[in-house]
Amino acid sequence: MDFEVIINNLPLYLEGLWITLQLVVVSLVCGLFIAIPLGMLSAHRNYWIQFLPRLFIYCFRGTPLLVQMFLIYHGLGQFEAVRESLAWIILKEAYWCALIAFSLNTAAYTAEIIRGTIRQTPAGEIEVARSMGMSPLTQQRRIVLPSTFRRALPAYGNEVIFMLHGSALAGIITIVDLFGAAKIVNSRYFVPFESFITAGFFYLCVTFLIVGLFRLAENRWHAHLRPRQS
């Protein structure tokens, strides 16, 4: 085993880590912004309001992230209309394509978490809000969403970890993220074990960080679920 190669290439790994973190954080933030209205609409009682959000969720959960990313990066460029449009400034860059694919993908999964959790809001808690004259919007804002947010935390923590690991796909379309860095080191020095275990180690560290953050969040927001401390 030759870890000297790894040490010499640490700057490359750290740059990769930085790109991975960018991709994950930005797509999680964008995804969440898309997911909240999407989840609320797909939890709506009206079939017609549900329809489009659920179709979106179904398509993005129903196909592999890799396929979605290839479609956006390689697929769209096939059409001349796309290549000549303003959007091409963004769509010709692998980085932006990965970001778009990740955002839409995590939006779909997160929306599904939100939909399920909204649906499980205790009916009595909504009813009492109605009975006190709360408007539907205030009910959502004050009762349904805060309660949903708390109950969705553990499932969302899972989604964040999946997104981190899913982001390794970016390394396939020329982006030098953590996985991309490992690929470069491997191809230059042919040390597959050392190069990929190093990437694995970094992913493990970031996961550790995410788990810790969610533990803190649960301590803060799940006080009402803990057994009473005397």
């Binding site: 205790p122 009595g124 808690e125 009813e127 009492v128 809000a129 309660s147 708390r150 927001w221 009402h224």
Partner: peptide
């Protein structure tokens, strides 16, 4: 209105 199941907001 006061309900049989209290329906306090649990959070």
């Amino acid at each position: 209105m006061v309900f049989q199941q209290f329906n306090l907001w649990s959070h």
